[in-house]
Design a protein around this nucleic acid. Structure first.
Length: 598
RNA sequence: GGGGAUGUAGCUCAAUUGGUUAGAGCGCCAGCCUGUCACGCUGGAGGUUGCGGGUUCGAGCCCCGUCAUCCUCGCCA
């Protein structure tokens, strides 16, 4: 007989009745009847009820065994009497009558309950992550994660992709997020950086003659956390394809994502091909480059209808070149006064000066602004929004960028508030045709996304077009308002690279200095190539229906990028710092606090 | 760095307008209980109301400061 078990805690059935078995697991719950004692023993696979009779020599000990201790029982599998069958358990038709027991690992009193799924302070959960991970919902999320990743590997491999590794210690990249740096011992004053993504490596792999690459790639970015953004590190399904177009990338990703989302969720998944939405249209209609298409509301332009009206606030915005955006909402005219007041407050909280509305309720127009509008204008608005009695139109007036952005927030809020969002579907879309350049805060032309993207129209566009009009073969995939990934057809031509950087104000020497590997490689015969890298953590988050990314990561850091269980980041020995040729230069505040602590 | 929310027993929460000894459920400890499965019953322990200051006859509650956590803006090619 095996040292610890002949079966797992989820394995035994009626067929095993009469067998002598050994199982090991955690004490999930104890039901002590004074005489007979029932213990639910739990492992990764399930629960099995163990019965302990008062006549057993180890009976006395059982009374004091705490939940979450690990124990090994040897005993006989018996049928439960009919009334005692538990249909909630897979093993509920049988139980084990214990003959021998061995304590394997005793548990102290636990700081929060494992067997019960009650809410619990997250700091405590992170400090005792090993206990938290025993709890069913988190445990299931991690199991789901493992299965999804295994399936991704199968699907990608079946599509002809090769899984490859790329370096974790690499050089700092000049663009993008803040890098995590690793000081070099051998080269004083020099640093490695952890990769923000294997971007340049995968492009080099294409240039090295590999055709289809993928990797479940760790990415490191030293940026602040959000609910859907874990600080420190996260994983991408990184991929790149040689001799490929944008459509080739879409096709593979649609296949893989549709399969994954269909297989690992009960929600209804959009049929493929997914909706393609140009960036410009997304901003104008949804006020966002990651619209939640479950929300049926769309924004329309009502600028011209307010140009000559008596409502000075709006007419003034239009006169100074601004925009009026409207959102028509069917059937919400009956909402309370408080609803409309709350919506105005909300609009103000996201930066709007106000929120106008027209409410066609019981045959009349109820609105603070209706009195400024002619009958003709009201009718034209009605026609624009396609509304009638019982409906409402909301209005936002501001410069175009702000109006779209605020309208996007209002659209989301209305969708949430009015319950317009179907929780049982996954709505995917591709956002395409991102602009190549945009104006930065100083009014200078800058790359709006990724300097490696191929401009649409190639060299001719770079030479002849207004840079702000040039589009890139740059795309995002969005699911239910979550940006899963960005990708692009890459710029594989050294001449185009130099020209593209020149427009952003950088000379050839900058390209050579900042991207030496790619610039060099592309001069020795580069294949046109394209790729993308969907966020694995976010995919699991959507599949597990979790609002927080930490619920799908085994050992996440907190918002301040600390691992409360391991104590990272932590102090190191002076010798280690000295070997790396570093000196600490701490903020005054921290030095002062350290002195006071002494 | 900015904004918001929260902070009361080991855990989750309550405590009327600022008013007597800060309560409940779970957990813990003790006792009872031989068919439960969130077992049940009885009793008990457990609190610097995050911390510091202020207002007040009186503060868990009001004010100021500070710390912590989460959400968010900035940031995330």
């Amino acid at each position: 007989m095996h040292r610890y078990r002949t079966h797992t805690c989820g394995q035994l059935r009626k067929e095993n009745v009469g067998e002598t078995v050994k199982i090991s697991g955690w004490v999930h719950s104890v039901r002590d009847h004074g005489g007979i004692i029932f213990i639910d023993l739990r492992d990764h696979y399930g629960l099995t009820q163990v019965v302990i009779d008062p006549s057993k020599p180890f009976y006395k000990g059982v009374e004091h065994w705490r939940v979450e201790s690990t124990i090994c029982f040897t005993g006989e599998v018996v049928n439960r009497i009919a009334e005692a069958v538990n249909p909630k358990l897979a093993t509920g038709e049988i139980e084990i009558v214990a003959n021998e027991m061995e304590m394997l690992g005793e548990a102290k009193v636990i700081p929060f309950q494992v067997a019960k799924e009650e809410e619990c302070n997250e700091t405590l959960r992170l400090e005792y992550r090993f206990l938290d991970l025993r709890r069913q919902s988190l445990h299931n999320n991690i199991v789901l994660r493992s299965k999804v990743i295994a399936r991704i590997r199968e699907l990608m491999t079946a599509e002809g992709f090769m899984e490859m590794q790329t370096p974790i210690l690499t050089s700092s990249s000049p663009e993008g997020a803040r890098d995590y740096l690793v000081p070099s011992r051998i080269h004083p004053g020099k640093f490695y950086a952890l990769p923000q993504a294997p971007q340049q490596f995968k492009q080099l792999l294409m240039t090295s003659g590999f055709d289809r690459y993928f990797q479940i790639a760790p990415c490191f970015r030293d940026e602040d956390a959000r609910a859907d953004r874990s600080p420190g590190e996260f994983y991408q399904l990184d991929m790149e394809m040689a001799f490929a177009t944008q459509e080739d990338v879409f096709e593979v990703n649609e296949k893989v994502l549709h399969k994954i989302f269909t297989e690992f969720s009960d929600k209804q998944v959009d049929a493929i091909p997914f909706t393609r939405l140009p960036y410009r249209e997304a901003i104008e209609k949804y006020g966002s480059d990651k619209p939640d298409l479950r929300n049926p509301l769309i924004m329309q332009d009502a600028t011209e209808l307010f140009r000559n009206c008596d409502f000075k606030a709006f007419a003034g915005v239009v006169a100074s070149g601004g925009t009026v955006k409207t959102i028509a909402v069917k059937g919400c005219a009956g909402e309370s006064r408080k609803f409309f007041d709350d919506m105005i407050k909300f609009a103000q909280s996201v930066g709007s000066k106000g929120l106008g509305y027209l409410r066609w309720n019981e045959g009349e127009v109820q609105s603070p602004i209706a009195k400024f509008l002619s009958e003709e204008t009201l009718n034209a608005l009605k026609q624009l929004g396609g509304v009638s009695d019982g409906d409402v139109m909301f209005f936002i007036a501001d410069n175009e960028k702000a109006a779209c952005e605020i309208g996007g927030h209002v659209r989301n809020e209305l969708g949430k508030h009015l319950g317009l969002i179907d929780p049982n579907v996954f709505k995917f879309c591709w956002i395409v045709d991102f602009p190549m350049y945009e104006l930065d805060d100083d009014g200078k032309i800058a790359f709006s996304h990724n300097p490696f993207s191929m401009p649409q129209g190639g060299m001719e566009a770079l030479l002849s077009k207004d840079p702000l009009e040039i589009l890139a073969y740059q795309y995002d995939i969005v699911c239910n308002g979550t940006e899963l990934s960005s990708g692009a057809v890459r710029n594989h031509s050294p001449e185009l690279m130099v020209k593209a950087f020149e427009i952003a104000g950088y000379g050839k020497e900058v390209v050579e200095a900042k991207f030496p590997a790619l610039y060099k490689a592309f001069q020795y015969g580069a294949p046109p190539h394209a790729g993308i890298a969907p966020g694995v953590d976010r995919m699991i988050m959507l599949l597990a229906d979790e609002p927080n990314i930490r619920e799908v990561i085994t050992f996440p850091m907190n918002q301040k990028a600390q691992d409360l269980l391991m104590g990272a980041p932590g102090e190191v020995e002076f010798n280690q710092i000295r070997d790396l040729h570093l000196k600490l230069n701490l903020p005054k505040k921290i030095e002062k606090a350290a002195e006071e602590a002494e």
